[in-house]
Amino acid sequence: MGHHSNWPEWLYVGVIIALMVWVGAEAWNVERLVEHVPADAEVIIVTAQQWFWSFEHEDGTKEIGTLHVEAGKAYKFEIISKDVNHSFNIHDYVVLMDAVPGRVNTVWFAPDKAGEHDIQCREYCGLLHYNMRGKLIVEEPSR
């Protein structure tokens, strides 16, 4: 071939590269903000096992299936698993992190309004994976 010019293709590739650089930069920036855990976040230990969630608050209170938190505070989840891989997910608050046995994975969030939200498992974990659900109850601030 070679009897046509190549510059439109170079321009096109340049535009794609520019777009991808932009996507990467935006994503990098948001990830940087989202990953920064506030220093005063309360720790909640989340334990995943086939096929339910249990939670342990900083003051030692334990809960199974339902998690109570207060609006206006930041919480840091330390997620562990007792058997197989799970994935801790509060879709309404865009919280997601795998529970991998032998590891402690962390993710944080700060609920802003009182309300009720679903907690679910997003990583395949066997027989009752579809029903490994819980509730997040965000309460009004106590003070």
Binding site: L19, V23, E26, V30, L33, G72, V94, F109, A110, D112
Partner: peptide, 24 residues
């Protein structure tokens, strides 16, 4: 706000990318 809202940040990024994706 006192804390950043991850919902706002992440969904905004999503809608921005979708705006561009649908334009292209």
């Amino acid at each position: 706000a006192k804390y950043i809202d991850r919902r706002v940040l992440i969904w905004n990024l999503f809608f921005k990318l979708m705006t561009v994706a649908f334009t292209v």
